[in-house]
């Protein structure tokens, strides 16, 4: 079967007066991690729920490995795993009991189920806590178990809806390594997030969503090139306040001045860095840090929408 794991075309969904999805086109390629990046309310969760058949789209099509998937038809979705944004587990049941319950709901039984549970416990590093009720686990452990419960049946495609919300950095790292091991196993993943660091680190391609639309997609470099161009971001940190006259002059030349920081997108970074440092030096303002780097996804999003990702 050579068809794409997932192909979404012209998906529209309206709730009352709100258009949650406004003609979304997206394709997930075999073995890749496709990040869906966007602020809260962009339509990411509605998109994932539509793919899982939990939301009936008003228009558009979804095909899974070349087969059209209509809402309510779970058979066409058996190759997909789903990890919801919420901790969708039974808090009074133990870690193992939760895995048994969800494994059985996925149709697993006997030795197949036992093997799946052992594999998942190891993968999520929860073997030592398997007899503990979920309610007693830390937030990070619950998140890991939440993901493990979605992959018991070894899906070929996994949809993760903001799986690291509210997780501390250490647990987040553990989750990243779980995701990376899935990719190594050839699982195709859709990963929704509003953390650009996650998208940059984990995703092969990124689709930027805003107001129910995919406004850009591609690798990070492609997104930067197609939105910002080949320029680099110059960032200069200074020791003292910049006088208003100089501030106006810098802004007039295309820079952004934010208290003790000057940033600028430049197609000729070497020349522009020299010019900026010279002007600051002329005014007696000490430079404490200087960097030239590829623009971040944050800047891409700002460029595309005119607002910050976390507004």
């Amino acid at each position: 079967m050579n068809a794409n794991p997932l192909l979404i075309s012209g998906l529209v969904k309206t709730f009352g007066n709100s258009r949650a999805l406004d003609g979304v086109d997206l394709d997930l390629r075999a073995g890749e991690v496709l990040g869906v990046l966007g602020p809260n309310g962009a339509g990411k969760s509605t998109l994932v729920r539509s793919v899982m058949g939990r939301v009936a789209a008003d228009a558009g099509t979804i095909s899974i490995f070349g087969t059209a998937a209509v809402p309510g038809d779970q058979l066409s979705r058996l190759s997909i795993g789903f990890v919801p944004q919420e901790i969708a587990l039974y808090p009074l049941l133990t870690v193992r009991e939760n895995l048994v319950v969800f494994g059985r709901y996925q149709g697993l039984a006997g030795s197949v189920l036992s093997e799946a549970i052992e594999r998942s416990l190891g993968w999520a590093a929860l073997e030592e806590r398997q007899a503990d009720p979920v309610g007693r686990l830390s937030g990070g452990m619950k998140r890991r178990l939440n993901i493990a419960a979605g992959v018991l049946h070894q899906p070929r495609v996994l949809l993760l809806d903001e799986p690291t919300v509210g997780v501390d950095p250490q647990s987040r790292e553990r989750i990243y390594s779980m995701i990376e091991s899935l990719r190594e196993d050839g699982v195709s993943l859709i990963y929704t997030t509003h953390y650009m660091e996650e998208a940059e680190r984990l995703c092969d391609r990124i689709a930027v969503m805003d107001h129910g639309k995919v406004i850009a997609s591609g690798t990070k470099d492609e997104l930067v090139r197609s939105t910002i161009g080949s320029g680099r971001e110059i960032r200069i940190e200074v020791l003292t306040d910049i006088p208003i006259t100089l501030r106006d002059e810098l802004v007039g030349s295309g820079a952004t001045v934010d208290e003790l920081r000057v940033t600028m997108l430049s197609d000729h970074p070497a020349q522009d860095v020299a010019r900026l440092v010279r002007r600051l030096d002329d005014e007696g303002i000490a430079v404490v840090d200087l960097s030239i780097r590829t623009p971040t996804l944050e800047r891409v999003f700002l460029h595309l929408t005119g607002r910050e990702l976390r507004e």
Binding site: R49, M52, G53, R54, Q74, R77, L78, I80, F82, P84, Q85, E86, I87, A88, L89, Y90, F102, Y105, Q106, G107, A149, G150
Partner: peptide, 14 residues
């Protein structure tokens, strides 16, 4: 309310 129903209804269980 906990989202467990969402998860359940994406399994083989109707």
């Amino acid at each position: 309310e906990s989202g467990t129903l969402d998860r359940i209804l994406t399994t083989r269980l109707s």
